[in-house]
């Protein structure tokens, strides 16, 4: 079956695939996860705050983002952002944002919705006595969150956060709709150029599978190490 396969294509394309493609994929994954975590935590705090309006806005945002297919958001955002930028800055023509920035913003917004739900569950998993004890010691709301509640919530939720990041790592391949050279995009370009579709897509699948598998394994190891002793 493999007799007429040319695996040399892969070997020759390796530098391009990894230097160009994988660098982009990992950078997008890392930055989007970081941004998503920061904004997601903020959204979670908004939802859990006593202020109803704030909570509703956050709740609407989360529901809205989760009701849309990611590809559609990426696509729309890429074409909309220049016009939004034009409208905000009052420029005379659409502002060019660039594929990386556009996809990064999209992923941060999208992941924030998912991360916020994870962080919300994490914060709610902390018993009410903990913030009460922190308040009783004179810590302000912000200090209570920063030093007592969020570190515990984050630790409780770290496995789920990383698992979501692994999903994000795979989802970043959707930027191919913007013809961006991420890992899959790079593989696809080589495949088309050399007419070696099967080999390249097979190889891409193996790489995604291997990285995700190793990461999942790492999560389990990490979980055992950082868990709070109770």
């Amino acid at each position: 079956m493999f007799s007429n396969f040319d695996f040399g294509v892969i070997v020759r394309a390796l530098p391009y695939l990894f230097y160009e493609g994988m660098t982009f994929t990992l950078m997008l994954t890392g930055l989007a996860a970081l941004g998503g975590l920061v904004f997601g935590t903020a959204i979670a705090l908004m939802r859990l705050s006593g202020y109803k309006t704030l909570g509703r806005i956050a709740g609407f945002y989360v529901d809205f983002m989760r009701s849309l297919p990611l590809v559609l958001v990426i696509f729309w955002f890429y074409f909309l952002v220049p016009y939004i930028g034009q409208w905000v800055t009052g420029a005379s023509r659409p502002i060019s944002v660039g594929a990386f920035a556009s996809s990064l913003i999209t992923f941060i917004m999208f992941e924030a919705a998912y991360f916020s739900e994870i962080m919300r569950a994490g914060i709610q998993s902390i018993s009410r006595g903990q913030p009460a004890a922190a308040n009783a010691l004179g810590l302000t709301y912000a200090q209570t969150m920063r030093y007592v509640v969020l570190p515990q919530a984050f630790r409780n939720m770290l496995p789920v956060l990383i698992t979501q990041t692994i999903v994000l790592f795979q989802d970043t391949s959707l930027v191919y709709v913007l013809s961006i050279t991420d890992f899959l995009g790079a593989a696809s370009k080589i495949a088309q150029r050399d007419g070696r579709l099967v080999e390249m897509y097979l190889f891409a699948a193996v790489v995604y599978f291997t990285i995700s598998c190793i990461a999942s394994f790492g999560v389990r190891r990490l979980q055992a190490r950082i868990a709070i002793i109770r």
Binding site: G129, A132, G138, V148, I228
Partner: peptide
């Protein structure tokens, strides 16, 4: 509150 010490039923140490 920083001048009023409080001890809780369930200790509430930060784990």
């Amino acid at each position: 509150r920083s001048r009023v010490g409080m001890v809780f039923q369930h200790f509430e140490l930060f784990p």
